[in-house]
Design a protein around this nucleic acid. Structure first.
Length: 446
RNA sequence: GCGGCUAUAGUUCAGCGGCAGAACGCCUGACUGUGGCUCAGGAUGUCGUGGGUUCGAUCCCCACUAGCCGCCCCA
């Protein structure tokens, strides 16, 4: 029988790496709080129709990457409902916005989420079938200012702040405007026409894209094609006046806030709901999956799924990719050391004392832990050498609790970093252990 | 979904058609109330899974599975 393993594209996260995940999430929550965002948690699965109508029927995500199944019919007469594991979270957030009539509050909604998403793609470094996204959405009725370019700029400025506070160095922000859906449709035709005479000179992929999805030609990385692509009409020229002004206001605010960015007229994103501002934060060292996060404005999404007019802007960052980037930068996650390892000690020929020493060790650990110290309790093997070896791996200090200590109430504490051993009265133990390593105080004996 | 590379000890990886290897880690002892450094010793294992070729396969062949890289796409 083959042993069971995590299914393809999924993985277990173990300590100490999970500490890094927690740090990332805590940092994100702290930054979102400062921008006055609240957390939203939407279900992990939704009606399949939600994604088809929001992300877009023809996108790769919807057409071939979703985990979809038919739920059991509730009654004989009913059709079974088609359900899907969420491949992204914006659709769920907008669905919740509509369902709870958040637009009726008249307020701008600023919501963030952290959670797993699912896409059935071929796994690679930085790409998993279950992956975690940290995202946020700013959405509301136009009267609440949801269409303001200031919202776009604020979100981008927040992301720059978040990446900096996470310690990610060397990111780049690329932004573009894809205009209104009408602008985009118009540009698509302009591009298609412009490609007809030149497609034959381009790579095989581009020849195919020229017909199936002209916008994707702009993403081509083949060196020989670049000159041709540069000469193609730019989407900026297909934007109407309003979209142009909107984009200009976004970049003006970014300039003033000193958020570095580059304008990338080729940046087109794969989800159908994007309008006007689109952006990506990228990082080298992630290989082919170089996008740390992506996002944009989606002024028509709510209406597309049957809701009120509710323009919005949002982003999703790949938490797995943040972890990879930070691991590459920091080389390893440092093991967290406990403040103390308590080593009970007693001659095994005195079973009653042994029980007392063990019991006292637990009580001592309880006292210290209640005072906020991180404490490892020894295993009761009462072999001091083993205790020292174990303690040295897991803690900054070892606290020896033997018959002598039990009687006197004065514990023997050794600092592993300095090698200095000290007698510490029980009442002063917590304060002593709280000091930084290698700087012992109090009575110092050998 | 397509193409390439890979799969051997807890980890990183050598290796060979004929007894399964190294380093690190782990365990024991030198040292019975003192770790790290050193020295001596020890255990590592379905050689990814299933088939085939062969007297004999961890090695060669095929399939499958998984990982990595690229394509596609995306976070």
């Amino acid at each position: 029988m083959t042993t069971l393993k995590a299914v393809r594209g999924t993985r277990d996260l173990l300590p100490p790496e999970t500490a890094l995940w927690n740090r990332i999430e805590a940092t994100a929550r702290a930054v979102f709080a400062r921008y006055n965002f609240g957390e939203i948690r939407t279900p992990i699965f939704e009606d399949t129709g939600l994604f088809a109508r929001s992300v877009g029927e023809e996108t790769d995500i919807v057409s071939k990457e979703m985990y979809t199944w038919e739920d059991r019919a509730r009654a004989q007469s009913e059709k079974p409902q088609s359900l899907t594991l969420r491949p992204e979270n914006t659709a769920g957030v907008v669905r919740a916005y509509i369902e709870h009539k958040l637009g009726e509050t008249g307020q701008l909604q600023k919501l963030y989420y952290i959670g797993p998403q699912f896409r059935r793609e071929r796994p690679q470094k930085g790409r998993y079938r279950q992956f975690s996204q940290i995202g946020a959405e700013v959405i509301g009725p136009p009267s609440a200012g949801s269409e303001s370019p200031l919202r776009d700029a604020e979100v981008l400025e927040m992301l720059a702040t978040l990446l900096d506070e996470l310690g990610i160095t060397g990111w780049t922000l690329e932004i573009n405007s894809v205009g209104s859906s009408a602008d985009r449709a118009r540009y698509n035709e302009v591009l298609r026409a412009a490609l007809i005479p030149v497609a034959a000179q381009m790579c095989g992929d581009c020849q195919r894209r020229a017909v199936t999805n002209p916008l994707r030609v702009l993403d081509c990385k083949v060196a020989e094609d670049q000159a041709i692509i540069d000469a193609l009409p730019k989407i900026a020229d297909s934007l109407d006046g309003e979209s142009k002004d909107h984009f200009a206001a976004v970049t003006a605010a970014l300039d003033k806030a000193e958020v570095p960015y580059t304008r990338n007229y080729r940046l087109v994103r794969g989800l159908d709901y994007y309008t006007r501002t689109t952006f990506e934060f990228t990082h080298g060292g992630l290989g082919a999956q170089n996008a740390l996060l992506g996002g944009g404005r989606y002024d028509g999404l709510s209406e597309a799924i049957g809701g009120p007019k509710a323009p919005g802007i949002g982003f999703a960052m790949g938490e797995d990719r943040l972890v990879l980037t930070l691991l590459a930068q920091e080389s390893a996650v440092p093991q967290v050391l406990a403040d103390a390892y308590i080593a009970p000690l007693c001659d095994e020929k005195k079973p009653d004392v042994l029980v007392l020493v063990s019991a006292t060790a637990l009580f001592l650990a309880r006292e210290l832990r209640r005072q906020g110290l991180r404490v490892e309790l020894g295993d009761g093997s009462f072999r001091l050498k083993k205790s020292f070896e174990a303690g040295n791996r897991t803690a900054r200090h070892i606290v020896i609790l033997g018959e002598d200590e039990l009687e006197s109430g004065i514990l023997t504490v050794k600092d592993f970093a300095s090698g200095i051993q000290t007698k510490v009265p029980r009442a002063e133990l917590a304060a002593f252990l709280s000091q930084p390593s290698g700087e012992p105080a109090g009575d110092s004996t050998s």
